[in-house]
Computed example of a mutant assay.
Amino acid sequence: MGTKRHLQLYGLCSLLTMASFGAGSVSAQENDRFEFYGQVNPGYYILDDGVSNTNYLANNDRSNTRIGFWSRDLLNTKGLNFNFETALGVPSSSNVSQVSEPQWEWNRTKIRKFDLTYETSWGKFYVGQGSMSTDGTAEADFSGTGLVATSAISDDAGSFLFRDTGGALTTRTISDVFQNLDGSRRGRLRFDTASLSGFTFSGSVGREILKAGNDNSYYDAAVFYEGNNSDITIEAKLGSAWVDTSAGSIQQTIGSLAILHNATGLNGALSGGLQNSGGQYIYAKVGVIKNWLGVGATAVSFDYYKSDGIALDLIAESVGFGFVQNFADRNFEAYFGLRYYDLSDKTGVVSYLDANHYALGARYKF
């Protein structure tokens, strides 16, 4: 990526950071029905594809640079809220590759939420662009390292191409084979029940309203559990998603479980999913989170991912390390991550080189 574009990215992130400090000086207490928020999250990345390195500065796609606002208790109706949120079109970490350099661009697909919600004592209704019921069902996690390590492996470098053992670029990308089958955001109707002994049930139906040419119908159902005592905190998620297309129906089931030992900060997470086409994956993570430095939580984790048949006859494996240092008084986090990728073809037709990825960055919230 050229020096000019690097300077543009640094410049935009600096302006956003200064603007966020300015926005933070306006007391939210002046109007507790309106809340403006956002974050800046640039990162520096290196991808070693086995032949050459690609170095690039980009927006961290695990939690992208964004702005938004809440307007609460609309029409003086308690529980009736509106949330707007959009990414800012900064070049993203998942769109860079050996052969592509993403452009600075904002269009309507960058809108994350345009969401009207109404919350009652027996549940919550959602209408508009936002999360389907299975969004997040693959990512129960107490590790604190989500900025560099989750089951969404392709967020870091999804567009990069694997090379064959002869050194030539293939057509296989990281995002082709490293998928967690997690739900997404759509224009939808959704309802979540109130919590019952820690359990919440959710259902949604949606359509793609931000991208042209997609006439699919989407249906999700999910159940969530949260529980804790003096020793441990538990979160569990399970969901199924159906997509009706002109070619037939696609169905996938996803689940995840996270456990935190409250006293020691030791934690673990497990997730997995399968498609009706036969593809499946499993992801496991262990970590520890502690305030060792006295400035905020320090989080460290190791994880492992394996998929089989997510893309044809390919088996994909990955091992990752994540480190995140929080600075609680500053709403600031610094992070480092590294990841190893392995891809193999069960038919033996093609052999692929291993790849490695490194990430260094920081996120500021306002």
Score class of each variant (00 low, 15 high):
L74W: 10
F82R: 05
L353H: 03
I232L: 14
G348Y: 09
D135H: 03
Y341S: 01
N31A: 09
D215A: 14
F84E: 04
M1S: 12
L74V: 06
L47C: 03
N95A: 14
S202D: 09
G279F: 08
T137A: 14
G213F: 08
N107G: 12
F336H: 04
L343P: 04
A299I: 02
I289Y: 00
Y45I: 07
Y340Q: 13
N95H: 08
S159E: 14
Y225V: 08
Y219W: 11
L293I: 09
L312M: 05
N41E: 09
T264K: 08
T171E: 10
S121L: 09
G198P: 10
S351F: 04
D220C: 08
L12A: 11
I289C: 03
V90M: 14
N262V: 03
L196Q: 12
N59C: 02
T120P: 01
L238S: 11
T347L: 12
N326L: 02
W104T: 06
W122A: 07
T137W: 01
L147G: 02
F82P: 02
N291S: 11
F160W: 07
S94P: 00
V90K: 03
F199R: 06
F69Q: 05
F125P: 07
T86E: 02
N262A: 07
F142Y: 15
G239D: 06
P42Q: 06
A328I: 06
G309C: 04
D73N: 15
S307C: 10
R186F: 15
S154F: 04
L293Q: 11
Y219L: 14
V90P: 07
G50W: 09
W104I: 13
S93P: 10
I310G: 03
S230Y: 04
G227S: 13
T145P: 05
V349A: 15
N216Y: 11
G198T: 08
A241H: 14
S143C: 09
R66Q: 15
Y305V: 09
N41S: 12
S217H: 11
G287C: 08
G272K: 00
V324D: 08
L266F: 15
V319M: 11
S256P: 02
L16H: 06
L360N: 06
A222L: 08
A258K: 00
T347N: 13
T253V: 13
T134Q: 03
E101V: 14
L161E: 04
F125H: 12
L181V: 08
A241W: 01
N262F: 02
Q129H: 12
N291W: 07
W292C: 02
P102V: 10
N276Q: 04
G337D: 03
T298I: 02
G128W: 11
I111S: 07
D231Y: 10
G158E: 05
D313G: 07
S230T: 12
T298C: 01
E105T: 07
A299G: 09
S27F: 05
